[in-house]
Design a protein around this nucleic acid. Structure first.
Lengths: 202, 202
DNA sequence: AGAAGCGGAGAACGTGCGTTCTCCGGCGTG
DNA sequence: CACGCCGGAGAACGCACGTTCTCCGCTTCT
């Protein structure tokens, strides 16, 4: 088996298991069983479990932000693009295996223990924050709105993770709409819960 | 030593350690060392670690919500009382040993493993949510605003926990002010970052 | 065909930790 | 004073898991 496909299989298994059950509840042996990659190979690719966790977070980060950006890009107009972020979150929350924000979960689990993991979480959240700041600037809204949208999105993720519904996305979207309107961004229609075909699995 | 004071000492130690380092990173022996309560006594009071965790969460829940309610009650007027929630959060975030929301942290750590713990987290968040709903009703705002304030507060807690500043509280307060104004609640002064002497240690 | 090395399976090792057990000193009662 | 019980200290046990080691079969090259 090619080293590259072994790596991918290992990461696939790690992601499914770590996200679904938590990092500490999953042993390296579980990853081996699920991935079919031998322990020896696993330790050649990732010399310690922490590195497997970091690699999992990194790969998921790239995919998560890529899919969000693609979804947002399908929308026209600065205001609707901001609202599309929350529509995308709603789709994510509705996925059957949704179990909250992977980064917040591992932060709760390892943030106090592993500085490397904590750093990745901060990097991911920082990148998401930057993304929202960009959308905010495009909409010619005050810079402060970027941070406000970020808080809304984080609150929605956390709440959806704990309570397990999709309403938090709608509630956050509603507040975002108020923030957009309150500062007079050019919004075509104040309602219309977004179009575009659903796909993607963040 | 009285059983009651042993229990309190155990919970004091458990809270400090669990909150500061995470539950899984703390052994029962650490609790014994820190509390001065012998292992035997510890297991008489809490037959398993999980029960100590639950007791820690319960006691902290009572104190946290009690202090929040007391702080809010010092304020006059439905609008200012809502804003006071975010001022209180800001004070909490500024405490030197603040390490995020205890419930979200344990949820990330044990939510997938321990249903008893997960249930306590949901109970705490539900109670907080109800509290905000009450304030929202008092202010004669639409019921939907309660959930929106909740999202803001959760987002602020999570963000303050990961990045470690107090700005999230101010940002969330600002959005709350917009929500209050947008629906014409009777707000005396739109600014003024709250009065009242700081105290309390949530 | 024979040799050599790569990789897989899984045993083995060490450690940490939740939980229980053992021993012992002190303190109150006949 | 003698006896017995309560509680503390910490050793002991069992298990889970991260990490490493051993053995063995297969493939590949000459």
């Amino acid at each position: 088996m090619d080293s590259e496909v072994a790596r991918e299989r290992a990461l696939d298994a790690a992601e499914r298991l770590f996200y679904g059950r938590g990092v500490q509840a999953v042993g390296m042996d579980d990853v081996r069983r699920t991935s079919g990659v031998s322990l020896k190979r696993l330790y050649q690719l990732f010399p310690a479990k922490e590195q497997l966790v970091v690699a999992y977070l990194d790969r998921r980060d790239a995919r998560w932000r890529g899919e969000l950006a693609r979804y947002v890009d399908r929308h026209e107009g600065a205001g609707p693009r901001i609202l599309a972020v929350f529509d995308w979150l709603g789709q994510w929350f509705a996925e059957p295996d949704f179990r909250g924000c992977a980064w917040l979960n591992v932060y709760g689990e390892l943030g106090a223990t592993s500085s490397r993991v904590a750093e990745r979480v901060r990097a991911h959240k920082g990148a998401f924050r930057d993304f929202l700041d960009g959308l905010t600037a495009d909409a010619q809204l005050p810079a402060a709105v970027g941070g406000q949208l970020f808080l809304l999105a984080e609150g929605a993720m956390v709440t959806a993770g704990v309570t397990g519904g999709t309403e938090p996305a709608r509630q956050a979207r509603e507040v975002a709409r108020v923030l957009l309107g309150a500062d007079g961004a050019g919004l075509p229609a104040p309602d219309a819960p977004a179009v575009s075909p659903p796909s993607a699995t963040p």
